[in-house]
């Protein structure tokens, strides 16, 4: 009996700890976003972060988009040719890229490439006392370090997802039209007649915006909350990638159910 109640108490503690850490990260986010920056150079801080978060992620996003688009075209062609509807490859590729693959795969790549880098960078800043030293200089690290990184992530992610989808569709067109010999007109027209601006492109962008928000939030919080040792930073980096991936896949299901559930 005592064993059971102890288990229950343990479970409760575990739950409370997690609720507490969610609360802490929420307050953290609030402070980072809604505090007046008050730096004359906040624009250049944001630019720097857009560079390291967005521009440096471009290569991996473009390469992945290209290959995923090409693979989708090949697979779709192999299935659809059996029904003589290979013209629908364009439609299939475009819809799966815009609705799902674009936001989700870009989000996962973003978490692995930019999110882990953010966590490691902030965690190391904490380990080497740079964050404390900022505080003692009288600069709020939430404004100086966290806020620009957070906004850069939120801005960069939808742009990366759009580039991913476009490159994927172009890759599919390359494989489908030039290689597999799908009639170009039906490739594009089947796409155009089924892709809707608000429902497909718009919702895909909303998804990627949500993913960008969540991944960057997790990344900067994990870095800021990391135990200031080399092991702590490595753990935090791992947690960023794991939590971000789970969050992306879970949220994707919820968002898809809300956006496309009644179709």
């Amino acid at each position: 009996m005592t064993g059971l109640s102890e288990r229950l108490a343990q479970l409760g503690r575990f739950g409370l700890e997690h609720v507490q850490s969610i609360g802490r990260s929420g307050v953290f986010l609030f402070l980072a976003i809604f505090s007046r920056a008050g730096f004359s150079n906040r624009f250049s801080l944001l630019t720097h972060q857009l560079y390291s978060i967005g521009v440096l992620s471009l290569l991996i996003v473009i390469m992945s988009g290209l290959f995923i688009g090409m693979v989708l075209a090949l697979q779709g062609y192999n299935i659809l040719i059996r029904y003589g509807s290979e013209g629908a490859v364009g439609q299939m590729v475009a819809l799966s890229l815009l609705r799902e693959m674009g936001p989700v795969v870009t989000g996962l790549l973003f978490a692995g490439r930019a999110g882990s880098a953010l966590t490691a960078e902030i965690g190391l800043m904490k380990t080497t006392e740079q964050l404390s030293s900022l505080e003692m200089i009288g600069v709020d690290p939430l404004k100086r370090i966290i806020a620009p990184r957070f906004w850069a992530g939120v801005i960069a992610m939808p742009l990366l997802a759009a580039i991913f989808s476009l490159v994927g569709i172009l890759g599919a067109a390359m494989v489908g039209i030039d290689w597999l010999g799908i009639y170009e007109g039906s490739f594009w027209s089947s796409m155009q007649s089924s892709v809707r601006l608000v429902n497909d492109i718009g919702n895909g962008m909303i998804k990627s915006l949500v993913f960008g928000f969540v991944v960057t939030w997790i990344s900067v919080y994990q870095g800021y909350d990391a135990v200031p040792t080399s092991e702590g930073v490595s753990r935090a980096t791992t947690r960023t990638v794991v939590y971000s991936s789970m969050a992306i896949l879970g949220l994707d299901f919820i968002l898809t159910a809300v956006m496309f559930g009644d179709l």
């Binding site: 476009l166 569709i169 027209s189 892709v195 492109i201």
Partner: peptide
Amino acid sequence: ALLVLALKVSG
């Protein structure tokens, strides 16, 4: 990219 998606892909 967004613009091209809107014009070329969604027609």
